[in-house]
Amino acid sequence: MSQSAMKKQALSRFLILAAVLALAAFSNNPYVINLLVVCGLYALPAIGLSLLMGYTGQISLGQSAFVGVGAYGSVLLAQHLQLDPWYSLALATALSAFTAWSLGWLVFRLKGHHLAMATLAIALILHTVLVEWRSVTGGPDGISAIDPISIAGYALLDDLHFLPLAWLVCYAGLCLADYLVRSPFGLAMRTVSENEAVARSLGIDAAQVKRKVMALSGAYAGLGGALYAHWIGYISPEPFSVAFSIKLLLIVALGGVSGVWNVLFGVFIVVIVSEWLKPLGRLDVVIYGLLLIVVMIYCRQGAVAALAGLYRKLPQRLRPGARAGLKLQGRTSA
């Protein structure tokens, strides 16, 4: 895609996103607005995981740990050093990226199952530390009375006021990730994912690529966690457990790897589905697990690709814009 086309695409996506958010904001439905903030905050760590798992092929069950590092890091820095939340946010993001980068030196000596278990162990160790190190983290009760983020002396206490910030950050994150996967570095990432031996033979330092992506993914997760902490005003170890890592895994699996923006699809599905399932009580977990299995068995390229495939199989008269699709097919086959 040419650069001007890319810019046009980014702009149109920005406008669509802004229109959707504005519509939600004007509807003045607190429930919808709250859900949209949650979506924006979920999307950040999910983008990071998509870069690491989708594009670089390195499974991680430890993404929740970096979200936790970001959240607790920002809150502790703000409270102990009397920092403005903006500075603590930036510091916590850097801290999370650095933690991820250092752990990358350790865990990327491993592959496949071993990598999955090592990252799982990291997530479990962090969770244990958050629960047990009471003097610093407040133990299972967590930390409350967290300062909100403020812009020009105006505190973003409301969901409605926080919404633009969350999604602006999310949009910037998406654009950065999109740019990255199209760049030469993105090609290196995909090569590492496809075949490490080939990557090395092309002069790509596979281990370094993985570490860099891990650091970036940690930064996304940390930023998401820090924003979450200052938005909700209270943190405890519970949201940063392995269950959250698995949720992120499902988001990335649903979105697939055909584009960074598909992560948003996964986020919306997961957040909305978990809302729908809430009245079902305990049954929600079961349906959740089944969804994970079915997606993994039947939609190997992600649910977006699967839906697109289904769409192509529809009889022509049911498909708006089918002619354009036909033209496109004709061109690719020629």
């Binding site: 496949g112 999955a116 698995i246 994970l292 190997r300």
Partner: peptide, 15 residues
């Protein structure tokens, strides 16, 4: 596929 196997068994555990 290793990753797919891992995620499916995690799903089985959840169910």
């Amino acid at each position: 596929d290793v990753t797919r196997g891992i995620i499916i068994t995690i799903g089985v555990g959840i169910v």
